[in-house]
Write a protein that binds this DNA or RNA. Structure first.
Length: 759
DNA sequence: ATAGGGTTAG
């Protein structure tokens, strides 16, 4: 099939056998300017830089004020007559992140009549630099000034501007410029490639295909870059099967694949959780195309493993890379620093950071941000602050991600006021808060119970033209779904987002119906609120993902009746028939009919990463347990090592499980042990241990819902388990006692799981 | 003037 045919089929195609692309939640939508000095040398090979300019540009970078630019340029104006001289200066200024100085260079240039012949070229470089710095606003301004002054109306300048918009994710603007340029000059291959890339970065794959078709209709021959860009576009849209087709079409058209092609395709596999496909391609690429896996290939796979929660594989592959004598680069080191920091292995993270510096890669803003984020998430504020201090001393200015990490850390640890104060600093620093930062704050407000601020933030977002995304909505849904919030009335001023007003925070530990502080009416209101958020997101064209569905399922767990839950589920039917079919089917007891689908779904959940799979599975099991569909709540291979044994002891580990999952797993374990006793006619070891830890609510010390639920359940079944010594999270019992209890006929009755609905 | 790997939610 050709890409054109694929494009035609894309809109009408039946649902692919895998999870829908929107279902996957691991898509990074953040576009932060990348000041990469890595990779490209600052001058084209064979064109040596004039030493005068080299030292002049260093001076300009160090100069404290952009207003000194004209004077500094005047000093070297005699050396700026070559066509690459001024572009060199602009690029270097761009690399150092100083967009104001770039703009000043333009102002200076248009006053130099003798440089008139270079205006177009320099303008294009300036727009491109501003684009790389994420300042599409200034890129547009420069463009307007150039056109106003009667130059800059050529393909080079236009393509620079299109790219500038593309890099900041402003797809609509990129397309608008593209359409406008057609009146002035005919777009060439590069322009088409740039527009397709803008669609890719803007997350609009269908439009990318539309532009591609238009390009073919214009008789333009797509090149390797076009195809690489298309693969990237499909990859960002989580359409890895589509990528396979494009990859095949390249071959049909006789366009040679290069390292970028392979790396892009492997990246799309990683994004789609298809690590086996990535590994296979990496294995064969050298033989089939003569292209050896590079540090980029390895980094891609390493990060892919890590993002799926397979840190062990990631670390092993890094070692393998070293064994193959592929040297890590700055990005690769940063990836490893991040992996170890997330695991809490800060010693290892820092040792890798040191190796990075010894290898000649200075730590950059990404290194700092990765470390800061993990320190913050793990509550190591002292370390985070000292890192921030170090950044300050080294003159590395915090960017929007630095602030996001800190603000998130504050929110997650209950320092809500400090988070809001820091948010003010962001604005003071002249940084533009983006949807990620707003979502972090909205989440923080939901969890810390500052309702007015949460709603004010949504308004502020709207005022700044920042549309809430799936994560923003998920935070709200999560709050309602867990029933941590209480509802009072509708907030009348909110124009685009009619949410009930949230007034107070309830203890998240109050999960159990009987103990809940929320009266049934309030519960119902919360469930309705969740449903409303869900509809609101649909109305705004935001597609729910697996996290959304988990939250909906959590809300279902709080419905008074199975009918209410069923109604709530109905809403997700339009988005994903399969997920709906499985959850609804299991809830209603159509186990036989949906079981095959269910198993496929559970297997596919693994491709979304361990944490994602666990969250969904917890949410689903909670609903099933809540509505007494216990039989349906059985092992889905999500809990790899839920139980194990040593010589002395049997263990059941309920960490990471929700209340429902933990109870279902407890039953399975007890049944397994009973079977073990019956079949092998052997005896149990000395001790039996159930580890609950703090369960899902580890963030709220001392509020172990899982432990309390399991303890209560065991008590109900007259089990001899009891809390072990001063370890509150551990229930133990002597093996012989468990044996006696399990073989008792009264216990057997307790253990039998019956579904109240079923076929 | 255009394409590939790293820092956000659950």
């Amino acid at each position: 099939m050709t890409a054109t045919a694929a494009a035609a089929a894309a809109s009408t195609a039946a649902r692919p056998p895998s999870l829908g692309s929107d279902f996957c939640g691991r898509k990074s939508t953040r576009l932060v300017s990348k000041l990469s000095h890595l990779g490209r040398p600052s001058s084209a090979p064979g064109k040596p830089i004039k030493p005068v300019l080299s030292s002049a540009v260093k001076h300009m970078i160090k100069s404290p004020s952009p207003s000194l630019m004209p004077a500094l340029l005047d000093q070297v104006s005699a050396h700026l007559l070559g066509p690459d001289d001024l572009p060199f200066i602009v690029r270097e200024l761009g690399h150092s992140g100083q967009w104001e100085k770039v703009v000043k260079s333009f102002d200076w240039m248009v006053l130099q009549q003798n440089l008139r012949s270079q205006w177009d070229k320099v303008t294009s470089t300036i727009i491109s630099s501003l684009g790389r710095l994420g300042r599409s606003d200034w890129a547009q301004l420069i463009f307007d000034r150039a056109v106003g002054a009667g130059f800059g109306n050529n393909v080079f300048v236009y393509s620079s501007l299109i790219c500038a918009y593309g890099r900041s994710g402003k797809l609509a603007k990129a397309v608008e410029i593209f359409e406008a340029m057609k009146v002035v000059c005919k777009p060439n291959l590069v322009v088409y490639n740039a527009v397709i890339d803008a669609c890719s970065k803007g997350g609009d794959y269908p439009t990318a295909l539309r532009i591609f078709r238009e390009m073919l209709e214009q008789g333009m021959s797509p090149d390797r870059i076009t195809f690489n860009t298309l693969i990237s576009a499909a990859g960002r849209a989580n359409r890895w099967e589509e990528c396979d087709r494009i990859f095949a079409e390249m071959e049909e058209r006789g366009i040679a694949r290069d390292d970028v092609t392979y790396n892009t395709l492997i990246a799309t596999y990683c994004r789609g959780g298809q690590m086996h496909l990535g590994a296979a391609l990496m294995e064969t690429m050298a033989k089939s195309s003569g292209i050896e896996p590079s540090v980029i290939t390895y980094s891609t796979m390493i990060d892919g493993y890590a993002k799926l929660g397979l840190a062990h594989e990631a670390i092993a592959l890094f070692q393998e890379m070293r064994n193959q004598n592929v040297e890590p680069d700055g990005i690769c080191y940063n990836t490893m620093v991040d992996i170890h920091a997330r695991l809490g292995n800060f010693d290892e993270a820092h040792s890798i950071r040191r190796a990075m510096e010894e290898a000649g890669f200075a730590k950059d803003i990404v290194t700092y941000n990765a470390l800061l984020d993990s320190y913050g998430k793990q509550g190591k504020f002292r370390e985070a602050m000292s890192l921030l201090e170090e950044m300050k001393q080294r003159g590395a200015s915090p960017n929007i991600l630095t602030y996001s990490a800190l603000i998130d850390a504050y929110c997650k640890h209950g320092f809500h006021r400090d988070a809001m104060a820091l948010f003010q600093d962001v604005k003071k620093a002249g940084l533009q808060p983006d949807v990620v930062l707003y979502s972090t704050l909205v989440d923080g407000c939901c969890k810390n119970g500052s309702p007015d601020e949460a709603l004010a933030l949504l308004e502020e977002m709207a005022d700044n033209g920042i549309r809430p995304n799936v994560i923003t909505y998920n935070s709200l849904l999560d709050a309602y779904g867990r029933q941590c919030l209480m509802v009072r009335k509708t907030f009348p001023k909110l124009r685009f987002f009619l949410l009930p007003r949230v007034t107070m925070l309830l203890k998240p530990s109050m999960q159990d119906d009987q103990q809940s502080l929320v009266d049934p009416k309030q519960k119902q209101a919360l469930v309705l609120a969740a449903a409303r958020v869900f509809r609101e997101m649909a109305k705004n064209g935001v597609k729910p993902n697996v996290v959304t569905f988990s939250s909906i399922l959590n809300a279902c767990s709080h419905c008074a009746s199975v009918e209410d839950a069923s109604n709530l589920l109905e809403a997700m039917r339009v988005f994903d028939g399969r997920v709906y079919g499985v959850t609804h089917g299991l809830l209603m007891g159509f186990r036989i009919r949906v079981w095959r689908d269910a198993e496929t779904l559970f297997n596919e959940l693994t491709t979304l990463g361990h944490n994602t799979a666990v969250a969904f599975y917890n949410a689903l099991t909670d609903v099933l347990w809540h509505f007494e569909q216990a039989q349906a709540a059985k092992d889905r291979h999500v809990w790899d090592k839920a139980w194990w044994h040593s010589e002395q002891q049997f263990f059941l580990d309920l960490h990471f499980m929700s209340v429902g999952s933990a109870q279902a797993m407890l039953h399975l374990w007890l049944l397994y042990i009973r079977k073990f006793l019956c079949q092998r006619r052997s005896v149990l070891p000395k001790y039996m241990s159930i580890l609950t830890g703090w369960g899902k609510h580890s963030k709220v010390p001392g509020e172990s819902a899982v432990k309390r639920a399991v303890e209560a359940h065991l008590l109900e079944m007259n089990s001899p388990f009891h809390v072990w010594g001063n370890n509150e999270g551990r229930l133990v019992c002597a093996g012989y006692q468990v044996q006696g209890w399990l073989m008792d006929t009264r216990t057997q009755r307790h253990l039998r799981l019956c579904d109240v609905r079923g076929d």
